[in-house]
Amino acid sequence: MFKIVRKKELNPSVTLMEIEAPLIAKKAKAGQFIIFRVDEEGERIPLTIADSDSKKGTVTIIFQKVGLSTELLGQKNEGECILDFVGPLGVPTETEGFKKVAVIGGGVGNAIAFPQAKSLFKAGCQVDVISGFRTKDLIILEDEMRANSTNYYLVTDDGSCGEKGFVTDKLKSLIDAGNNYDAVIAIGPVPMMKFVSLTTKPYGIKTIVSLNSIMVDGTGMCGGCRVSVGGEIKFACVDGPDFDGHLVNYDELMNRNAAYKAQEEENKKTHICRMTQLANELIK
């Protein structure tokens, strides 16, 4: 059992939790992830580690309530426990040898981009962060990112805060203004990562993306998370989740990620119904 020691709603759909997991906290590096399972009937869901504190023995996760399991996790309160919390999994992000990097976070992807920015910034690298959100209300981690970057650029699709536009627009203007980046690290929705990769390709800038494919075990034993990278089959959980953005087959990833859409919807509906029913019975 793993205890939730802190819970904070970052915006209406995104929650931060600090989980007591001393062994994982001691080992976790930027770019790695954990697998959680809320309860006995629960599924195993991967989440990237947003931060960790080896002294306190805690690991921070930031998640968007997008389906049944994240919904159930979000219903848990401080002091309560979840059943399983496994990690750190995956290969840490390559951060050595970079002097100037652009870190791009899209939406809740900023939570995953944050530890990368932080670790690079701490290592003395120049870090330009571009944080993109759909609208003002969804902005997360602005202060944290500012504190761990050389330059921080906030963009919103609708222009309700920061500059109006997509992260790719900002990135292109920074490159065109003469910024020579050793690497671009892009984390967010798959289409965003795809378009960032398309933006950097003509300039030949190394681009690292963190893939969020469907996982079951997260240790390399099922291949549910497989992706094509440079025409080869790779398992995101053990070979990644970071890959060369210019080699990833994004369309295939999006297709595979949609495999259980209908069942997920159905599951969420019936499960929530069951919870309501249970609540009603308890009230009676």
Binding site: E43, R44, V216, D217, M221, C222, G223, G224, R226, S228, I233, N249, E252, N255, R256, A258, A259
Partner: peptide, 18 residues
């Protein structure tokens, strides 16, 4: 890579373990 293609490990893990 199509959806609906499983390794036996994934298929059996989903069924037996999960």
């Amino acid at each position: 890579d199509l959806s609906g293609v499983y390794s036996a490990n994934e298929y059996l893990t989903r069924i037996n373990l999960m």
